[in-house]
């Protein structure tokens, strides 16, 4: 009886560890890549500021900021194209994409500046699966190409 209880606890501990490992893997996954970076481009990741260069891989929850002279172009793993002009801040709040089923979820926030989007497979597969938030509104993306501007303070 005691042996069985111990092994049960072990199984649960192992299961918990596996679940954690899975979560960790998912969090570290590349969700997109910077393709174009002009002027000042900064990526804020887990409290650190990184210079945004062409070729850089992006992670979930990255916040992309451009300076007065900056612009940036990003290709996401679902083939969405996200680009921003000067003085812009975009947060990649939530991103999940299954490359086999094309199911997923993409939520970004434009805090200020200008954003151009060509939506990809996530929005094509399920029309409510992509949103862009601004300080005053929420945009539901059914497709495909649009632009958003938020006057910065």
């Amino acid at each position: 009886m005691r042996i069985r209880r111990t092994s049960y606890a072990t199984v649960r501990a192992v299961a918990a560890a596996c679940a954690l490992a899975l979560v960790a893997t998912a969090a570290a996954e590349d969700i997109g890549q910077v393709k174009v970076a002009r002027g000042t481009v900064t990526i804020e990741r887990a409290g650190t500021q990184l210079p945004g260069n062409a070729g850089m891989r992006l992670k979930r929850a990255d916040v992309v900021t451009t300076g007065v002279d900056g612009s940036v172009g990003i290709t996401m793993s679902d083939n969405s194209l996200v680009s921003a002009g000067p003085n812009s801040t975009i947060a990649l709040d939530r991103y999940e994409f299954d490359p086999t089923t094309h199911q997923g979820r993409f939520d970004a926030t434009l805090r200020k500046g200008s954003l151009a989007v060509v939506s990809g497979r996530i929005a094509k597969q399920s029309p409510d699966a992509m949103t862009v938030r601004t300080p005053a509104a929420v945009l539901g993306v059914r497709g495909t190409e649009f632009v958003v501007h938020v006057d910065g303070p």
Binding site: K35, V36, R38, S71, V72, G73, I74, T75, N79, L81, S83, A84, G85, P86, S88, S114, L115, A116, V118, V147, H149
Partner: peptide, 13 residues
């Protein structure tokens, strides 16, 4: 409003 943002758009796959 969007000239620079559109100019930075990556090539389509």
């Amino acid at each position: 409003l969007f000239g620079p943002a559109l100019a930075a758009q990556p090539a389509r796959p």
